[in-house]
Design a binder for these strands. Structure first.
Lengths: 217, 217
DNA sequence: GTGCACAAGATTGTGAGCAATCCGTGGCTC
DNA sequence: GAGCCACGGATTGCTCACAATCTTGTGCAC
């Protein structure tokens, strides 16, 4: 968005946080990061300002930045917000997707079926993320896409618990199939409801503090 | 969030954009703003980075910042996103609000009734904003509140068309009453539906490109 | 041993200056 | 007159240095 150097540093820091190399609550010393990324302190600084503005990092005056810790309660909030926004994209996708976009969504779903049949849960999990991405793309709703991406970024701490709960995968596939069918059938209400239904399961799981199948949203 | 000086500049710039003193697409020259706000260029600079990150301003490399122009299509998107998020807050408010918070919401609604009876449409409009704020507060949903605030900030260009459409006020009041009753009645589904119903009217109006009663969401 | 004052070190916040880049203008060519 | 090129002014991007502030460690009083 701004200069290439800052953009790069921003993305790399984001990635470091995302992958857990920079842990939640870890102190982010500008000079250290500058050396680590091989850029000047000023660049790190503005990258940190940007990260702060989208809630991935918290700033305290004269005490610098830290990776923001997300409490369980906040995680629920984030997921709730994501749910209503993704429901909106499902609705939009049903209303506005092109035939090509619907085909793309279907193809992802087919891939998920195959992975599940093969017992490849990790592959299934990846397909899951791809499906949500395909639906968001089909909705062509810039604003919702941006907000969802931001919320995803905040879920850092829970990114490592994205292991499938045993036995949930078949249900998950059925829910996803319902969403895709509604979109393909051009039924916005059904698409929205199916997405909300699907995401409510994730929220229920999180509220019960069983965070393990979090990526399977 | 960061240093007092930057925070102040950030807020003031935001306000200047919000009130239209800095018009959409207007070029934001750092030196000029620095003089105008009586701060150094560095402070203006980081304030602009923050504004850029929350979508109020766009940066182009070596060409600086401009107030972002919001197209009609984007405005619809923003409103749609706001609608689902505010519906979420209405739901949460119904589920979690304290008696005190419900009283506060009711009081705002009563004030709106009085303003409307007095024919004070401007006062009614203010009450409107206050009601939405009260509901958001009652929901105690930090994430949704933050996202909604951000979306509000992006609607800059339409802030001056917040004049009541003749004859809509009574409908508006009825819709708001439904929302408040549902919250007070502890009925999350009804509260969410009432809020969605209410905001769908605003969206419909905007889609028809009659932007005039935009603030009456 | 505990607590407090104070100094030293570390880190962030800010200002000034310079290089890099863009934009407009004028002149030159055809 | 139209188009192209070079140059100068304006503006941003970035470096560097320093001031402001916080934190840590030390010594001292009790």
């Amino acid at each position: 968005m701004t200069s290439p150097a800052v953009d790069d540093a921003y993305e790399r820091l984001r990635s470091l946080i995302y992958t857990g190399e920079l842990m939640p609550n870890e102190r982010l010393v500008e000079a250290d990061l500058a050396q680590r990324l091989q850029v000047s302190r000023a660049i790190v600084r503005t990258a940190l300002v940007r990260l702060g503005q989208d809630g991935i990092v918290v700033h305290t005056p004269h005490r610098g930045a830290r990776v923001r810790v997300v409490t369980d309660a906040e995680a629920v909030e984030i997921l709730q917000a994501r749910a209503v926004l993704e429901a909106l994209t499902a609705r939009q996708a049903a209303a506005r997707a092109t035939a090509r976009e619907i085909t793309a969504v279907r193809r992802v779903l087919t891939g998920m079926e195959r992975k599940l049949a093969e017992g490849d849960l990790l592959g299934y999990s990846e397909g899951n993320a791809a499906l949500h991405a395909a639906i968001i793309a089909a909705a062509r709703h810039e604003t919702a896409a941006r907000l969802i991406a931001g919320l995803r970024g905040q879920m850092v701490r829970f990114q490592f618990r994205t292991i499938l709960v045993p036995g949930r995968a078949p249900d998950s596939l059925a829910e996803h199939t319902a969403i895709v069918d509604a979109i393909a059938g051009r039924d916005p209400d059904a698409a929205e409801n199916a997405m909300r239904h699907h995401l409510s399961h994730v929220e229920a799981a999180l509220s019960r503090r069983r965070l393990s199948h979090f990526g399977e949203s």
